[in-house]
Design a binder for these strands. Structure first.
Lengths: 265, 265
DNA sequence: CGGGAGGTTGACAATCGTCAATCAGAGTGG
DNA sequence: CCACTCTGATTGACGATTGTCAACCTCCCG
């Protein structure tokens, strides 16, 4: 159930130049929150870091690990989860390219949950002092990182409401909407058509349901024409408004800019 | 259901001195996260602010409000909640003395949920530019505020797991534990004996249950000797370990210092 | 071709929700 | 001091969404 925390260190990047930095996805993500000048951009791309290639299912961070560095996802998908006493797992967040998967560890000192790769991918480990340093030396970068933490929090709150007060059908439709927009913004797909990176069991762990019920609910959404699925993992959204209505979805909590595809279509 | 957002502005404090500042509770809370020097302390206490007295149930912030200021709770209790399409409410956070109830608004620009007083109390409104200014001029203050945001996020994650993967009995016991510790740290009570500030209906909205089921579960916890209740709202914890075990509670996610009462007893 | 992970389905069980009635306590006005 | 009222707590009967168990299927890969 818990594969070893095996990782291969591949690249150490300390080049004095921006071009070709492995941290490009991080810059892209942070640029989304604040307008940077050349110094900001260069400082981000030149952050000292270690790139690791991780295989499917391998752990980036384990609960109670002491945190010496913050971790940015460069490619692939990762999840953050907690295990409760009954042995059940709750996925608390899903991360994609360019996102910090454990920025909080830089400030809080230890991990209060685990982070695991969902697919093969690469991550960059940045020493925690460097994160703090850049945040306070370059206020725009600091603001962007703080904003990122706060949007993270906003998503958690929506998940609390989603899991606490919506039924299975609404809950899953809501998650499908969130994914659609986040993948679009991350440049990983069209919002009307994407490949779900989670298995149905993982979807269940993310929504507080069981895989059996997730399966039934997806089938039902398909029967009702809310989504279409050419294969088990593919999600085709014929009518965005119908899905958004079904999922009681309002994108405000993602704090996206206004090219919000929820409004187009 | 939604009482008017009526508020009485009571005090405008811009005194040049620390002593007697209404922001003492904020300083106390932020001091918990970082060591401040005299300049830090003075800057916090001298933040320009407006104090408002709010009555029971009145709103501090409504969803979609534009945020011009951040709001610190000076006394009383407040909740943050979201309403879903079915009309049901989910409480996503409960706040006590000294806590920012909407720090995220300072950075994100608008409120993605509502904040409501649970009891009568006072809040201080601090202009958002002042928050940003102090955060970057005084890095220790900035670190403390960032840490505060991140601990907020950590609590949300635990709530996701609590609501998503624990049964009613465990879920409620967990919340009772969280309260016990947070009230203690805020200096608002003994961890073995406190007055629950939520009604059973509000407890239900916080745990994703119904008030009827909360009532039954509390009764059951009492019958089993996990808690004692001299009145409906009073919580008496005879055996902390028993309650913590019942609630699958590990205080790590609160990121408290080590005088953690969970370890005593 | 065998094995394994993930998806699908049905039968049945149970936790939790709904509805509705009653009760207890606090505050109010006569 | 006592009806009156309102909010919140309590309890029972019943219903339903969701979980559990278990089988089988499908696809991918070595």
């Amino acid at each position: 159930m818990l594969p070893p925390k095996c990782q291969r260190e591949t690249v150490v990047n300390k080049s004095g130049y921006n071009q070709g930095s492995a941290l490009e996805p991080l810059l892209h993500k942070l640029s989304y929150w604040r307008k940077f000048d050349e110094a900001d951009r260069r400082a981000i791309l030149n952050l000292p870091h270690v790139v690791k290639s991780l295989e499917h299912n391998h752990y980036i961070v384990r609960e109670f690990d002491r945190a010496e560095s913050a971790c940015v996802l460069l490619s692939g998908f990762a999840i953050r989860h907690k295990i409760v006493a009954s042995g059940h797992r709750q996925i608390v967040a899903i991360h994609m390219k360019g996102e910090f998967v454990d920025l909080q560890n830089s400030m809080l000192g230890f991990a209060d949950h685990s982070v695991q790769m969902l697919t093969p991918g690469k991550v960059a480990m940045i020493p925690r002092q460097e994160i703090e340093r850049i945040a306070f030396e370059l206020p725009q970068v600091g603001r962007a990182m703080w904003t990122d933490s706060l949007v993270d929090g906003s998503i958690f709150r929506e998940w609390v409401a989603n899991i606490g007060r919506r039924d299975a059908r609404t809950r899953i439709a809501h998650l499908l909407c969130e994914f659609s927009l986040r993948l679009k913004v991350a440049g990983l797909g069209e919002h009307s058509n994407y490949e779900m990176p989670l298995t149905q069991e993982q979807l269940a762990d993310a929504t507080g349901l069981t895989s059996v019920h997730v399966n039934r609910t997806l089938k039902q959404l398909q029967r009702d024409g809310v989504i279409d699925r050419s294969s088990p993992r593919s999600i085709v959204i014929g009518d965005w408004k119908k899905l958004a209505d079904t999922g009681d979805f309002n994108s405000a909590y993602l704090h996206l800019h206004d090219e919000d595809p929820a409004l187009a279509d």
